[in-house]
């Protein structure tokens, strides 16, 4: 123990500070969402009805499961069960892909109906719905980018575990990657009701 000079608390503090920046990055968009919801409650309602609640719910479940898997991965690496830790981290990556596939099915359905930024069909809709879909594409798009980054980070973690760079005594990297992944989940927990269930 005493031979490791790494500052675990410092590393975690740094990661949490970074997570705060992510929260406030999305925070700017939540400022916009809340004010526009206040301005156009009826249009947001009609907009929300056009989104697929099933796919939205499915993706929520997928992300919750992935968060669970990350947590298990960290538990197993702490217990020194490397194989299981790798397996659950890989499962997380698979969940990330599942989420993205769902998302792309959903988006392409929207595109197919002529709903994409600046599309003619969208421009004919009421102002509030245009804003609703604008926010929808920007916020879920930015979230999707975070899912991709998270999946890549998890891939690196698997590689590091295989190299034994992350192990029973030194796992703060996996913990921090996990924190990032949970944050991505956290943001979706809010995006889901705000877009798919808005009434």
């Amino acid at each position: 123990m005493s031979e490791i000079h790494k500052d675990y608390t410092g590393a975690k503090l740094g990661m949490w500070l970074f997570l705060f920046t992510e929260v406030l990055l999305f925070g700017g968009l939540f400022v916009l969402y809340s004010t526009y919801l206040y301005k156009y409650p009826q249009d947001f309602h009609t907009g929300g009805k056009q989104l697929d609640v099933f796919i939205g719910t499915l993706n929520t479940v997928v992300l919750l499961l992935s968060s669970f898997f990350v947590a298990l991965g960290i538990t197993y690496i702490q217990r020194g069960e490397k194989k299981l830790a790798i397996r659950y981290t890989l499962l997380t990556i698979i969940m990330a892909f599942g989420f993205l596939i769902n998302k792309s099915i959903e988006w392409s359905a929207k595109f197919h109906h002529g709903i994409y930024p600046n599309s003619e069909h969208l421009l004919e809709m009421p102002h509030g719905e245009q804003i609703f879909f604008g926010l929808y594409f920007v916020m879920t798009g930015l979230h999707g980018i975070h899912v991709i980054i998270g999946a890549v980070v998890m891939g690196v973690m698997v590689w590091l575990m295989k190299k034994d760079n992350i192990n029973k005594d030194d796992f703060v990297k996996l913990e921090n990657a996990g924190l990032y992944w949970h944050l991505v989940d956290l943001i979706w927990i809010f995006l889901f009701p705000l877009f798919y269930l808005v009434l």
Partner: peptide, 19 residues
């Protein structure tokens, strides 16, 4: 209600999953 439930969920994630 939706936001209260979402907040509860995120508190669970922060408290346990995020240690």
């Amino acid at each position: 209600v939706a936001l209260t439930l979402a907040t509860t969920k995120s508190l669970l994630v922060i408290t346990y999953f995020m240690h």
